[in-house]
Amino acid sequence: MANDTMIDIQSVSRSFRQTLAVDSITLSIRRGELFGIVGPDGAGKSTLLRMMAAILNPTGGTIAIAGHDSVKDAEDIKSIMGYMPQGFGLYTDLSVQENLRFTADVYGVTGAQLEKRLPVLYEFTDLASFKDYQAGKLSGGMKKKLALACAIIHEPPLLLLDEPTTGVDPVARRGFWDLLSGLHAQGTTTVVSTPYMDEAERCNRVALLYNGRVLACDSPSAIKARVPGAVLALTSSDNRRLAPLLLGLSGVIDIQTYGNLLNIIVTDRDTVRSRILDLLDSEQIDDYTLEDAPMRMEEAFIYLVNHAEGALPEEVAS
């Protein structure tokens, strides 16, 4: 194993009774990376992260974190990592400060070290004025910030975050990602799972997870480059009628609807564009706009799901 590998996942599987949540995944995450695990609900993101956090044993394959085996050396992993579970894992009846001090005790951050660390964390998360608030009374975004502060109290080289921005408003989400970027700049290896495709764009690399398998693992730009052709954005008064007609055109790969906006993924921008214009003409629609649009993670992900090799069974047969 190369020395710059932080997480080495070798054909890892995990099944619950007969449901296969993670299906022989192989991944390698380098030191210092901001790595995204992206996928819809039920894709196996949490299961994979819990196995990385050494709190769930794989039913097949091995995971090594900084060279420690996740089953045999689970406790070694736990002291070098910060973990934020999907729900709020802290105590709602304890104040912000009490939660931080409790976590510090558990991670062995004490005395002068802690007194130096606390102001840094308050400053970093902007929680100083809330330190005597009961954690349960904080807003969703502040709870996540507190959980992050607890997770990094011992300055771990590895941070595992399970859907840290789910249920958080867009402004707080952006603020949270700014914090993650800050940690990344300090060299913390960060693995973050998210169902939001826009967040995936902020990662160095992402693994697209679907039905327990990795559809693609690359940098966001490389993943988007996998989708052939270009994206055309069409707004018109009669999208609903047009969509099936557009899909019938040769050269149209996929269509995604956003309100009255249609994102049309096409093989060849120029030829298909003229075909679309012809169609609009023959359907006698004049109040339209047809523009070039950037390929987004969302389009790329849905394209990759729809064009994944073979059918992906939801469960293994008994």
């Binding site: 956090a53 050494a54 709190i55 406790e75 736990k78 002291s79 990592m81 973990y83 579970p85 999907q86 729900g87 709020f88 894992g89 802290l90 105590y91 709602t92 976590t103 558990v106 991670y107 062995g108």
Partner: peptide
């Protein structure tokens, strides 16, 4: 039930 145990077992406690 509350998930605080998940946070605890993931710590080196």
């Amino acid at each position: 039930e509350n998930g605080t145990l998940e946070q605890l077992v993931a710590s080196p406690v």
